[in-house]
Nucleic acid binder design. Structure first.
Lengths: 232, 232
DNA sequence: TCAATGGTTCGGCAGAGGCCGAACCATTAG
DNA sequence: CTAATGGTTCGGCCTCTGCCGAACCATTGA
């Protein structure tokens, strides 16, 4: 059956430690240069080049040339979600003896990280919960959210680029994304990305280099309290 | 980082063609003997034994001895969902040139199949849609459903074993599961499994050997019309 | 007790593929 | 033009692991 082969092929692509390290870095949703990815994976540039072209061939990554550099990013959010689901599985792999799941061992990552291009972890959940509890966001269908009229006002007041988010017409606007550490949905899609952008632009959060981990700044912690009525 | 290794390890387990073939068979939610799995994968028993113990070690499978036989099944529905998400990815891997996704090439599988232990494909979606449109099922939270009072009556009339489904207390009762061919949610969890059981027990559907494909019988087609008001 | 059947362990073989050094191409800066 | 930098291709090495034959263990049935 053709799907069996396809399954093993795509899984095998993710199943190499060096490629998994690259994919993990790319889970921050940004594009990275080939040498950057090689450094992260701890391999030479020529080895990385082989891995990268194989992942492009397998439709996991997309490549874009810019000057002397070549930038690689995840091919789609579907890829990101498949990786998240595997990570969720890996996180629960703990035996009954040592109950501590893998992600528990990195509290910073659990606290706040990027999931592709939006916020995840405790902070992502806190933001999402605040939006739903204030009636700014309502569940719509099984995997989407509806931004209510008060929600639009709130976002505008916050400085979220709503027109920009709506412009990406091919993309889901407000999507539910399962958080693998909190095991509950957080806001993703174009709106989720726009909200995350706001956090970065206003200095509420900072990306850590070579990691999906995000640091919540002091002003970010205050903003969570004043704007969202949440404490983390 | 520990999560990176965990990711590559679990992906590598799924990334071998023989193991992927076994996992694919086990996606029917049932337990299969070691020799059965070996036959499916097209390898000898001793080779299969090695694969199986590695997958048990990696918490993908659970094993149960019974007499001379040894039965293997997926360790949890999380495993099934991770595999589904990879299959969804593999299905969209088609190049722009040949746009037909992989699952399109198996219309029977797309029409009706088991997803772990419940019905999926067009039939699964038809059942789910019917239940929601009649007000028997209401979305509850992002990933669950609520069975309404009329819904309970309907299920009892149908012969669904509701007490049995409720007994599995550790399990989600009515869960939303994303259908990778229809790209919409169908009913899973204990209730989804109980409904699927009803279909098999009443002779409305039959499992095909060595496959997740399910055949809808003539009486099943009529039942869909009379009980669910649906045509497929 | 003895065969038959299902399953696992062991040992050795062979192929796949990850890795790097070296060479090569492309773009930018001086 | 030349040098520097980023990236890829090529060739060969080497490990990893999937595979099977053979032997072994466990359960069942006669």
């Amino acid at each position: 059956m053709i799907t069996v082969n396809a399954l093993s092929e795509v899984a095998a692509l993710m199943g190499d430690p060096a490629r998994a390290a690259m994919l993990s870095l790319l889970m921050d949703g940004r594009a990275h240069t080939a040498s950057d990815l090689a450094l992260t994976a701890g391999i030479t540039a020529q080895t990385a080049s082989g891995h990268l072209s194989r992942m492009v061939e397998g439709n996991l990554l997309a490549a874009r040339a810019q000057g002397r550099n070549r930038f690689y990013r995840l091919a789609s959010s579907d890829v990101a979600h498949a990786i998240e689901s595997l990570m969720a599985l890996a996180g629960t792999r703990a035996t009954p003896a040592s109950r501590t799941a893998a992600w528990r061992r990195d509290p910073d990552l659990r606290f706040c990280r990027t999931c592709y291009d939006h916020l995840a972890g405790q902070v992502g959940i806190a933001v999402t919960d605040s939006l739903t509890q204030h009636g700014y966001l309502e569940p719509k269908g099984p995997r989407d959210w509806k931004l209510t009229e008060p929600g639009e006002l709130f976002c505008e007041r916050l400085g979220v680029d709503l027109p920009g988010a709506r412009q990406a017409s091919s993309r889901h606007f407000a999507r539910q994304c399962l958080d693998w550490s909190e095991r509950r949905p957080h806001i993703s899609g174009a709106l989720g990305a726009a909200i995350a952008d706001t956090f970065f632009k206003r200095g509420w959060a900072e990306r850590l280099r070579r990691s999906r981990t995000v640091r919540l700044t002091d002003s970010g912690r205050r903003a969570l309290g004043s704007h969202f009525g949440a404490t983390v």
